[in-house]
């Protein structure tokens, strides 16, 4: 598997094709927005009965990344569960599988907007993780340096000579990074959306998830006019 290296606030980080972020110097693997239990939550609300396989799909991917990188620390960057009830209603298979993945390493659950509150799952539960010089939190705070966040589920659309292609992506301007959603049943927000426009500096790039990932200037709503 191939990754894509970039510098963030002086640290070298690697984007994995899966959407995970690998900080080799600290042996830290970070993934965001797993949204485990999404299908269960939709069913509970009387909606469609989606295939209940998103945990298998997502944990399968995470297991592969853990196998590949052998991290000492895993940081789940918030919205790991689609809501608190989903977290407490994890089926046996998923719970056991999670426990296996967590065994023998430090595991940090950052709190997200979907899963804010006490969660009955082992590991460290934090609002923000300070791992100087980097900070890990769910939602990007404008102006902070060295911050890694999730929440927005960014994707980017690129015009090629064969038409446009859209991929999930990591957004980064060298000072902060926003990670794409890692969960199987998640939608994405385009990088030219107003919500993302002011969060990134002018020189931001979108690192598109592919194998290996590759970077383009962050596509924005109002492209600079060229003569």
């Amino acid at each position: 598997m191939n990754g894509y290296e970039f510098e963030l606030h002086g640290e070298t980080l690697t984007v994995l094709p899966s959407g995970g972020l690998w900080w080799a110097a600290r042996r830290l693997l970070c993934v965001s927005d797993l949204h485990l239990g999404k299908s269960e939550r939709m069913a509970r609300r009387g909606g469609a009965l989606l295939p209940p396989y998103e945990a298998r799909e997502t944990l399968g991917k995470l297991e592969a990344d853990i196998h590949l990188t052998a991290p000492e620390v895993v940081v789940c960057l918030g919205d790991s569960f689609d809501d608190l009830d989903a977290a407490s209603a994890l089926d046996e298979e998923t719970a056991t599988w999670l426990a296996t993945l967590m065994a023998g390493r430090r595991w940090v659950w950052i709190e997200g907007n979907h899963d804010a509150g006490p969660v009955e799952i082992s590991g460290t539960h934090l609002e923000v993780l300070y791992e100087p010089p980097l900070i890990f939190r769910h939602i990007c705070v404008p102006g902070k340096h060295g911050e890694i966040s999730g929440h927005y589920h960014p994707k980017a659309r690129v015009q090629t000579r064969g038409g446009s292609l859209t991929r999930r992506c990591v957004l980064t301007d060298g000072q902060k990074a926003i990670l794409p959603a890692y969960g199987a049943y998640t939608g994405s927000l385009r990088s030219d959306d107003a919500a993302l426009a002011d969060l990134m500096g002018a020189e931001a790039v979108a690192i598109l998830l592919a194998d290996p990932p590759l970077a383009v200037p962050m596509p924005r709503a109002a492209p600079r006019r060229r003569a």
Binding site: L68, E203, P212
Partner: peptide, 25 residues
Amino acid sequence: RLLEEEAARLMAVAGLPERGAPAAV
């Protein structure tokens, strides 16, 4: 191939340094 081609072109046009590089994990 299309994506790679366009990515290389865009980075060059935008004058962005190749800050990152592909890496084998």
